[in-house]
Amino acid sequence: MSLDELEAEAIFVMRETVAQASNPVLFYSVGKDSSTLLHLARKAFHPGPVPFPLLHVDTGWEFREMYAFRDRVTAELGVELIVHLNEEGRDAGVDPEHPEYTDIMKTVALRQALDHHRFDAGIGGARRDEERSRAKERVFSFRDANHRWDPRAQRPELWDLYQGRVNRGESVRVFPLSNWTERDVWEYVLREGIDVVPLYRAAPRPTVVRDGTLLMVDDDRMPLRPGEVVEERWVRFRTLGCYPNTGAVESRATTIAEVVAEMREERRSERAGRLIDQEGNAAMERRKSEGYF
């Protein structure tokens, strides 16, 4: 029963974070990994409340359904939600077409929020199977006062004796789902009946094909390029981010069970649908060393 073992490990890691950190936070991106983390947090601290706030770094370019889902779920569960948007970036008109978009609206925005709230531990949903450089990441990953990750100066991580204490200004990123695969997350979502954004389930949606990727036209925030024709297609999403950069897959899987069944056959990585990850092999490594989680 791999899922039970993975769940136990994640709960242990979350408890350890709360025991060691003075001001922890959960990075909540509204996606399935975040929903899974939130569910695990409820389990870890039951019957107590989730003992940390959720931080959503909002680009202003998320799918509308994500905002609705975020507000509904956090209200239902009574958890504290902090939303941070890089307002300077927005005011400067940085949109997903902007070459520095990811850096300004995600990396810089996250640093702003961490500095402002002085969080010393951030729980994130990253998994080691996502990308090659992630395989070297610790479960408790140390960041210096500039939020930098130095792969050559990582703290050795022995047994399950995680070292989460840091000096002032430094922080750790904590990854309870390190050893999970995308399929594990889906199997777990199914098993536990975890509520996820409806975009993960297939439905007829307005789409365009851009640079070989299926994009959903969520609303008029995304201007169409000349020649692009909006067509309704049955699609769902494997990952969710800012919608002009997030590719959909064609699917008729309208329930989580059907999504899981499709996942069992899937041969492409989930990030295959993300435009920002295709910049080159070292892209993720570089972004991480700059503070992107």
Binding site: M1, S2, L3, S35, L38, H39, V73, E76, L77, E187, L190, R191, E192, G193, I194, D195, T255, I256, A257, V260
Partner: peptide
């Protein structure tokens, strides 16, 4: 956030090592 419990059928979770 809980979906109906009946939805959570864990597929073929045969005893694995």
């Amino acid at each position: 956030m809980a979906a109906p419990a009946g939805a959570a059928t864990a597929g073929t979770d045969a005893p694995t090592p």
